[in-house]
Amino acid sequence: MGDLNGKIALVTGSSRGIGRGIARRLARDGALVAVHYRSNETAAKETAGSIQDEGGRAFLVAAELGVPGDAEALFASFDAGLAGIGAEPGLDILVNNAAISLPGHIGEVTPEEFDRTVAINAKAPFFLIQHGLRRMRDGGRIVNVSSAVTTTAFPSTIAYGVSKGALDTLTRTLAADVGERGITVNTVAPGFIETDMNAAMRATPEAHAALAAISVFNRLGRPADVADVVAFLASAESRWITGQRIDVTGGSRL
């Protein structure tokens, strides 16, 4: 995979789950990684610690998303973190991974739940990109983490699907806007991955087996399955790929 030495990466929601896997993989490829978290500092420190144990470099960025001024607050923490370790300011790789998923069919979702879901999953990435581009060097990489729900109907999480659909559109449109700077913008769309977010859905052996059977490989995905694809999109080898949605579902429901 590509050499990311000298690159600075920011991965939102990287204290656990898919985000942790992405942060660790980018660090193994040589990037200095900003590990973003909202409130679970212990988990974020575990992510950073695992990176350092593997010979990589990381620092923490704390900020709540989905609230007024979130992008400004996050990048204030990001800039301070870089300065605190004596690193030059800048950004090369932005991975918008942080998200929430609230259950509910169309008749059950409240306006407050809808607004919060969209604010974290779609609005926050929009303005993080806006602020990130001011720091991003030419030839940078933006990767948005979407979901299989934008191409397969999941009525029980409709608000989540709407928010991720907006993220897919953002990817394609933004790619056309920043191409002249050599910046690529792509989406990865995972299916069911073994993370805390869906633990309740696979609480029994029968439920776990049913979810695994959705993939042609008859297993659930792992964070590394997604992280490896993100690492490729963050590398120089992906320079001719932009505006694309990469399915990372293990051939689910083919």
Results as ranks from 00 to 15, higher is better:
15 S>E: 15
196 D>I: 13
13 G>V: 02
227 A>T: 03
208 H>Q: 13
147 S>L: 04
73 A>G: 10
13 G>A: 06
157 T>G: 09
172 R>E: 13
128 L>N: 03
219 R>T: 07
166 A>K: 08
152 T>H: 14
190 P>D: 09
207 A>F: 03
37 Y>F: 15
125 P>R: 02
111 P>T: 09
29 D>W: 02
140 G>Q: 05
18 I>Q: 02
10 L>H: 01
77 S>M: 09
245 R>H: 13
134 R>N: 10
227 A>F: 04
153 A>D: 10
12 T>H: 01
155 P>E: 14
22 I>H: 00
161 G>D: 12
228 D>R: 05
66 G>H: 09
29 D>I: 00
99 A>K: 10
147 S>C: 07
54 E>L: 12
64 E>C: 01
123 K>W: 14
90 G>F: 00
185 V>I: 01
133 L>D: 06
128 L>W: 03
238 S>H: 02
105 H>R: 13
227 A>E: 03
154 F>A: 15
115 D>M: 10
88 E>M: 05
226 V>M: 05
88 E>V: 08
145 V>T: 05
4 L>Q: 01
47 T>D: 09
176 A>G: 11
205 P>D: 04
212 A>G: 10
97 N>E: 03
120 I>V: 14
249 T>I: 02
210 A>I: 06
169 T>E: 12
169 T>R: 15
112 E>V: 11
51 I>W: 05
1 M>F: 12
29 D>G: 06
54 E>A: 14
19 G>P: 01
106 I>D: 11
99 A>C: 11
193 I>T: 10
148 A>T: 10
253 R>W: 15
23 A>M: 01
224 A>Q: 15
235 S>Y: 04
50 S>Y: 12
38 R>G: 13
168 D>T: 06
68 P>F: 05
28 R>V: 03
39 S>W: 08
245 R>D: 09
238 S>A: 15
243 G>N: 05
163 S>T: 12
195 T>P: 07
10 L>N: 00
245 R>A: 11
183 I>V: 10
200 A>V: 12
178 V>N: 04
74 L>C: 07
18 I>G: 00
252 S>L: 11
247 D>H: 04
125 P>I: 02
40 N>C: 08
98 A>S: 11
60 L>M: 06
207 A>I: 02
248 V>G: 00
68 P>T: 06
